[in-house]
């Protein structure tokens, strides 16, 4: 088994493990990942926030790697030594990447449904500068519908390609990909074809930002005002293991269960996601484990006071 040292912590990992996976096994100082998704084949390598420095290539070839490498796509070699947070160069490069990601990303978090569970929000809090040096117009797109249940805010997209991989790997006919190139390239269904298949909703779950949102949940509530509860049901299409997000007695949305890295544990079907929104449809297991450091895990589920918007909705 190859031995790899990441930030002075050594671990034995199975051959073929990537640096990022090895870091997740260690569990400390894990490089962030915006595009890598362990359940999707061929994901990763694009966002460049997981860049790390390899100071020793391997036992056989101890030369350091000349450039920073994407930890999600670089397999460990026996005796490899990697610097993540201990390398100022890595931190500097990562800050640069976060700044690049925010160049065209609108700061509309106050009206974004992803706020509170957005990876880019967390990442920019940890690495970003308080002030942007970009002073030009951002690229803009019209919002569009991808199928009848999904809203695409292309403005917010960071082009991680995860949703296209979901479309590619979970569904039969691929009707969804990337058009155009450079900073104006966009996620799109081919010639406006709406995505219509039973697992398309997972594109919402894999989206690290608020580019793909659930139309049945849009503007219903803030994420941190809803209470996540694990539940399951007998589903013929998927595992049926989901998270229900409650506000009061009402199920506002259904998502897959996320692990500590923010990835779905198992993809769920559209029937579970969109059509089963009554408590009677589900067997409740108990409060969800939210391991991430977002506001949800702070356990402040109650509204501090009644907001006008919710009052109106409850009437």
């Amino acid at each position: 088994m190859p031995k790899v040292t990441i930030d002075d912590i050594t671990i034995d990992v199975p051959a073929g493990t990537t640096i990022l996976e090895a870091a997740r096994m260690i569990g400390e100082n894990v490089p962030p990942a915006m595009c890598y998704y362990s359940k999707l084949k061929g994901s990763g390598g694009k966002c460049r926030v997981c860049l790390v420095k390899v100071t020793k290539g391997s036992e056989k070839d101890p030369r350091p790697m000349p450039k920073l490498v994407a930890s999600c796509r670089t397999a460990v070699m026996d005796g490899m030594e990697v610097k993540n947070v201990t390398s100022p160069e890595v931190i500097e490069a990562r800050k640069g990447v976060v700044e690049f990601l925010l160049v065209n990303h609108p700061l509309d978090c106050p009206v974004c449904d992803q706020a509170g569970e957005c990876h880019l929000q967390d990442l920019s809090y940890e690495h970003g500068a308080a002030k942007s040096r970009y002073e030009f117009k951002r690229r803009t797109f019209e919002t569009r519908d991808i199928g009848d249940k999904i809203k695409l805010h292309m403005n917010r997209c960071i082009l991680c390609y995860r949703c296209t991989q979901v479309a590619d790997q979970l569904t039969d006919q691929r009707v969804h990909g990337v058009l155009g190139r450079g900073e104006v390239s966009e996620i799109s269904t081919y010639i406006e074809t709406a995505i219509d298949n039973e697992f398309s909703g997972n594109m919402i779950d894999v989206c690290p930002v608020g580019a793909l949102t659930d139309k049945t949940f849009r503007f219903k509530s803030r994420v941190w005002f809803t209470k996540p509860v694990y539940a399951h049901r007998n589903c013929t299409k998927c595992t049926g293991k989901v998270t229900l997000w409650y506000q009061g007695e009402e199920v506002l949305r259904v998502t897959s269960r996320k692990d500590q890295w923010g990835e779905s544990e198992a993809f769920i079907c559209n029937e579970c996601r969109y059509d089963k929104k009554a408590t009677s449809d589900w067997k409740i297991e108990g409060p969800a484990h939210v391991d991430r450091h977002s506001v949800i895990s702070q356990n402040h589920y109650e509204l501090p006071f009644e907001l006008p918007v919710t009052q109106k909705k409850l009437q």
Partner: peptide, 15 residues
Amino acid sequence: ESCGQCSPCREGTGW
């Protein structure tokens, strides 16, 4: 000509 696949090139070249 940037393909738009990775962030530094996609955003940095335009900037």
